[in-house]
C-alpha cells in the first residue's frame, strides 16, 4: 500500500493515539480499516482508508495487522509529511510490516520494520441509525468551540432546536454557551453550518473526550455530528476524494 503523503497516516495516528494504544488494522481489497474501544470503554473509534486514498494498493489475501501505536508513532516521526509511504505486509511472514519512506526531491529513502502484535480486539456491530439531529460544520469551528468550552466545564451539552445548535458548558465558577445557526450567506460548502432535526433534543457529553475527538479536524475541513436521544453521538470526518473517514461514537452522560 503506497500513500502519496505520510501526513495522512500521521494525522490518523494523532487522531486516535490518545484513545487507543494498540489496535488491529483489517486489510482487504477495499482498503485498510480499524475499529477500537478506548480503555475507558467510553468511545468507539473507526477509521477507514479506502483504496482511493492510496497511490497504489494491492491486497491479495485479507490480513489483520496488530499495531502498537507507540512504536508506530516513532517510526512515522521519521517520515517527512510530504514523503511517500509504502506499507508492506507479507503473508508468509506475519511477524512484522515494513514501512518505506521516499523523498523524491532529495532522492532519499528510509526503511523501517514494525513488529506486529497479537491483539485480542473486541469488534462491535454499529447499526445504521435514524438520527434525530444532524449538524455539519467546519471542523475548525467545532474544534474551537469544544476547546474553549472544555476550559469552562467538564460537561458539554449539545442542544438542537429551532434556535440552532447550542453548545453549553458549566463549571464551578462559570458557565458558557455558544449558539450556531444554519448559515445562509456562505458559498463555500466547507464553511457552511447545516442543521437538520426531527424533534428538539439535548444531550450531554464529557468535554475531555470531545476534545480528543476534535484532533481529527486535521483530516477534514468539515465535521458531521449525528445525535439521537439517549444514544451515543457520532462525530464523523470524511476525507477528501473519497479517501476514507474517521468516526467516533461517544457515550452520553446521563442522570
Amino acid at each position: 500500500a503506497r500513500l502519496p503523503r505520510s501526513a495522512v497516516l500521521k494525522k490518523i495516528l494523532d487522531s486516535v493515539k490518545d484513545l487507543v494504544k494498540e489496535t488491529n488494522w483489517d486489510c482487504n481489497e477495499e482498503g485498510m480499516s480499524m475499529q477500537a474501544l478506548d480503555t475507558g470503554r467510553i468511545v468507539l473509534v473507526e477509521v477507514m482508508l479506502r483504496e482511493a486514498a492510496f497511490e497504489s494498493y494491492a491486497c491479495e489475501v485479507p490480513m489483520t495487522l496488530g499495531i502498537d501505536m507507540e512504536p508506530f508513532g516513532k517510526v512515522l516521526r521519521c517520515a517527512g509529511g510530504d514523503e511517500k509511504v509504502t506499507i508492506k505486509a507479507s503473508r508468509n511472514d506475519q511477524d512484522h510490516i515494513e514501512l518505506v519512506f521516499e523523498n523524491e526531491e532529495k532522492e532519499r529513502m528510509s526503511a523501517f520494520e514494525l513488529k506486529l502484535m497479537d491483539i485480542d480486539g473486541e469488534h462491535m456491530a454499529v447499526p445504521d441509525a435514524e438520527w434525530g439531529a444532524e449538524i455539519s460544520m467546519p471542523s475548525s469551528e467545532f474544534k474551537k468551540i469544544v476547546m474553549d468550552l472544555a476550559e469552562i466545564g467538564s460537561d458539554l451539552t449539545i442542544a438542537v432546536s429551532k434556535l440552532g445548535v447550542t453548545f453549553t458548558a458549566q463549571g464551578n465558577n462559570c458557565k458558557g454557551s455558544m449558539v450556531l445557526q444554519p448559515s445562509t450567506a456562505v458559498d463555500k460548502k466547507s464553511e457552511q453550518v447545516a442543521i437538520s432535526f426531527t424533534e428538539p433534543l439535548e444531550m450531554t457529553f464529557a468535554a475531555p473526550y470531545m476534545k480528543m475527538i476534535t484532533k481529527a479536524a486535521a483530516l477534514s475541513s468539515t465535521v458531521t455530528l449525528s445525535l439521537d436521544e439517549a444514544c451515543p453521538i457520532c462525530v464523523r470526518y470524511e476525507m477528501e476524494d473519497n479517501a476514507g473517514h474517521i468516526k467516533y461514537y461517544l457515550a452520553p452522560k446521563e442522570d
Binding site: L37, R41, I42, V43, L44, E122, H123, M124, A125, V126, P127, D155, T204, A206, C231, P232, Y249, L250, A251, P252, K253, E254, D255
Partner: peptide
C-alpha cells in the same frame, strides 16, 4: 451529577 455511560451496551459485540 451526570453519570458517564459506557459505549459497549449501545452496540452489539461481534
Amino acid at each position: 451529577a451526570l453519570m458517564q455511560r459506557e459505549i459497549v451496551p449501545y452496540f452489539e459485540a461481534l
